[in-house]
Design a protein around this nucleic acid. Structure first.
Length: 592
DNA sequence: GAGTTTGAAACT
DNA sequence: CAGTTTCAAACTC
């Protein structure tokens, strides 16, 4: 630490935190200071005065919150023994604030491991993706139970308790207030939101960035420097807090952090007799729809417009004029588009026999932009430079940032990767999706919301699991090594855009060894979080346009299928990803 | 830049 | 669960 400090400029302030011995929370969340946090491992520091203790939290403690990149970057430093870290604040205003870093849940790693699925601005290099806490729930609970740390019963209450134990936090708050950017800067921030920063940052004042009001939090990201929020808890140092609250929110609404934009093409036709826009080329839409009454869906107040999608039957908007697709238009289109379905045999197929074609073909399935731009800027998702988007056409979840005309262009490959990793897209609400390898058919639960890329079953398979944050049910690996790599195996996993990430335990982990494995999740192993929402009642709720809070639609396919006796497989269409030579370029999605 | 409007989220 | 309040972003002046 000394050395490290000496290397730093004299202006640097040092925040010390004991990684192993004490669990300290820092309220040093001043926006500016946040930027300049560096956490340097291997530095021993005095125990924090903070009363919060958490033992055994840190085993791999190196991470760096890079001020330069406006991001919290956690380096995979794992000093088996070193339990102390130094948090260096560069030009910080909160020099006396101890910071606890409960880190190294690979979740926070830039590699994309543990990326939250709902990231909307995954291309924002400045954002730190939140990790699923699931993977370390057990340890955390142990820690907490033995830690006397207040458990979250109420997010606000928890914070209150939290803050009570952190006298420093009060000062930090004052400091923060003192250093708070003036509202005047808000405009600057606004200017930075998309065009300049490439990502949208928040300006929360009262919610501590721990509610869905906060765009960062909502997107599963930590607040970063561009944010002008106050009393922000949505930062890596409060990872546990964030994750707890997220879990709470998810407990209220399991889809709270689910992708808001889905490919309706994947929705069951039955899902509606009315909601057939899924079949339309303009298949992307807002999952819950909007409820605009005055803006006519022509302003960014509108959730649909904001992300560049047309309104759908899910919307309860009034006087919809959405340039990306009016509600009425969407419904009209959906009725007419049959490309998803093979009329001759009633089987649904996606033929992506050729790479480029597959892209174009699939893209044709996601024509939302094509159909609905209406002369507006083409959503970034179509931007040629976004190779991953180009190569992962519609099947992937269209993140708002991708879809938004305002979304920034990604400067590096990160975006796409993250997007693929974290933005599962297609939502199967009512259809069984199986993929066939050779002669075997592997069921993919339609409950899985994450069919993000036909090319990427990995993504597809992983997403739902991620959704099952609290689920202990872990799907077994599909590992369809049965087929030859060229034939039976699904090549998409080899796709450059497909990270070798899979869902292990409760989080995403890189699995170098299983890079080529497929995952098969028996239906009965569907994450309970998804299962539990499968009651007809909830399904109705989901489909109800009047519901603000949405239940997982995908879980309810039974209902969507009608009230047929057996929810899981019967009554619904079954999709089979038919493998053809040279998959992934030759994959057929077959409805059986 | 201040104030207003808007609709989602949260609350009752 | 419907109605209300709170919130932060979007928008207007």
């Amino acid at each position: 630490m000394q050395e490290a400090g000496q290397k730093q400029q004299s202006m640097r302030r040092h925040l010390h935190f004991e990684v192993e011995g004490a669990y300290k929370k820092s309220i040093g969340n001043n926006d500016n200071s946040w930027n300049s946090i560096n956490i340097v491992p291997n530095v021993r520091t005095p125990s924090s005065p903070m009363g919060l203790e958490a033992t055994g939290l840190f085993h791999a403690n190196s991470y760096t919150i890079s001020n330069n990149k406006q991001a919290a970057n956690f380096s995979p430093y794992s000093p088996s023994g070193s339990s102390f870290c130094q948090l260096e604040m560069l030009e910080t205003h909160t020099n006396n604030v101890d910071t606890s870093v409960r880190n190294n849940r690979s979740s926070s790693m830039p590699s994309g491991i543990g990326l939250h699925l709902n990231s909307i601005v995954s291309n924002c290099g400045s954002n730190t993706q939140l990790a699923r806490k699931d993977s370390f729930n057990s340890s955390r609970e142990k820690i907490l139970s033995g830690n006397k740390q207040p458990m979250l019963e109420d997010s606000e209450g928890w914070l209150v308790e939290y803050e009570k134990q952190m006298p420093i936090s009060q000062d930090a708050y004052r400091l923060e207030e003192f250093n708070q950017r003036s509202p005047k800067k808000k405009r600057n921030r606004d200017n930075n939101t998309f065009e300049n920063e490439g990502c949208k940052r928040c300006n929360c004042r009262k919610t501590k960035c721990l509610k869905l009001y906060c765009d960062c939090f909502n997107a599963g990201e930590y607040c970063t420097e561009p944010c002008t929020c106050k009393n922000c808890f949505n930062r890596p140092v409060y990872e546990d807090t964030v994750l707890d609250i997220r879990q709470q929110i998810e407990s209220r609404n399991s889809l709270a952090f689910a992708p808001k934009i889905v490919q309706c093409g994947q929705e069951s036709p039955q899902n509606s007799g009315e909601d057939s826009n899924q079949k339309t080329p303009a298949s992307a839409r807002h999952k819950r729809g909007c409820t605009c009454k005055k803006s006519r869906c022509l302003k960014k107040y509108c959730e649909c417009y904001k992300v560049g999608v047309g309104c759908s039957s899910e919307c309860r908007c009034e006087g919809c004029k959405n340039v990306f697709g009016k509600k009425e238009e969407m419904e009209h289109i959906k009725l007419g588009d049959k490309r998803w379905e093979d009329a001759s045999d009633g089987k649904m197929r996606i033929d992506i026999s050729q790479p480029e074609q597959s892209h174009s073909d699939v893209s044709s399935l996601t024509p939302m932009f094509q159909l609905s731009n209406h002369g507006r800027a083409v959503p970034k998702s179509q931007h040629p430079t976004r190779r991953h988007l180009a190569s992962t056409p519609e099947s992937q979840v269209l993140s708002p940032s991708e879809m938004s005309p305002q979304s920034p262009q990604t400067s590096d490959g990160n975006y796409s990767l993250m997007n693929v990793r974290g933005s599962p897209g297609l939502v199967l609400h009512d259809q069984e999706l199986d993929y066939q390898i050779g002669k075997e058919v592997y069921p993919l639960s339609p409950r899985w919301d994450g069919l993000s890329d036909i090319h990427d079953l990995t993504s597809l398979l992983n997403y739902p699991l991620s959704r099952a944050s609290s689920s202990k049910a872990l799907r077994p690996e599909l590992s369809q090594e049965s087929g030859s790599s060229s034939h039976g195996s699904l090549h998409w996993r080899n796709s450059p855009m497909i990270p070798n990430v899979h869902f292990s335990g409760n989080k995403f982990v890189t699995d170098p060894g299983s890079n080529n494995k497929l995952y098969n999740v028996p239906e009965d192993e569907t994450p309970h979080i998804l299962k539990e929402t499968c009651s007809p009642k909830k399904a109705v709720k989901t489909s109800s346009p009047n519901k603000k809070r949405v239940s997982p639609p995908h879980n309810c396919l039974h209902e969507l299928r009608g009230s047929s006796s057996s929810p899981s497989l019967r009554g619904g269409r079954k999709f089979i990803l038919q493998s053809v030579p040279s998959f992934p370029h030759s994959v057929k999605l077959k409805k059986v």
